[in-house]
Write a protein that binds this DNA or RNA. Structure first.
Lengths: 114, 114
DNA sequence: AGAATATATCTGTCAAAGATAATATAAGTC
DNA sequence: GACTTATATTATCTTTGACAGATATATTCT
């Protein structure tokens, strides 16, 4: 298994770091995960993440500025959605690290009881 | 194409955000990429990333505290290496986003003139 | 037009992160 | 033991980030 190749990111390190900074906050990561299910209004996010309207709005605008989310307005409401599949992939990678997929085979010992 | 599943990260959002914070700095990301090639001494990192000894050392210790790097001492020198394959995967994902593997086909428009 | 709702922006304040310089520790050399 | 090299730690300063509260804007309803 090849392990190398990381060096090709080096010229883009600053740019990549900016994206990471935008994601590197519990509230924002929660928001992105939640929005990953499908577009959400600010209100829905406000309920989900339990914090003030102002706080959610500020985090959302940071995510938008970073190119992670986009928004569309419909009537009084604003709907946020992910701006690119790449971000989804990144979050999915995090998920695979922190929530390792049950490997199907629950590696149970033969004759395991209860 | 299934897009969902991001919600399973939600309970681990804080933890994941901590890792992202540790990586979310140009210098640290550079260091991790470089170390991804194989273990490196602080001096090598100092030359590679052009900054002071103190600065490199501080960033390394943050990465180590975050569980991203580990170190071993040999004589006067300290060698840093990545602490887990998971981090490599994460950085590889970033790479696939910022340095998309050339798809062979350079998708050039026929007859495009300056 | 006036009130209510949804969201954004601004401002002040406090905490955390980053840079640099100086100093400390540890290992090796003479 | 004094000297040098490699790395870590500490102190100080500056910048950035987070949060709260107040206010602003846009939209809909009456």
């Amino acid at each position: 298994m090849k392990n190398i190749g990381l060096e090709s990111l080096i010229p883009k390190a600053l740019e990549a770091a900016e994206t990471l900074k935008a994601l590197a906050h519990e509230t924002r990561l929660l928001a992105v995960c939640f929005i990953g299910e499908g577009e959400k209004t600010v209100q829905e996010l406000e309920d989900f993440i339990e914090t003030s309207q102002s706080n959610v709005s500020q985090h959302l605008s940071r995510l938008k500025a970073a190119g992670i989310l986009k928004s569309r307005k419909d009537g009084k409401q604003v709907f946020y959605s992910t701006a690119s599949p790449e971000i989804i992939r990144l979050v999915m990678t995090l998920q695979s690290i922190y929530c390792p997929p049950a490997t199907g085979q629950a590696k149970k010992k033969a004759g395991g009881k209860a």
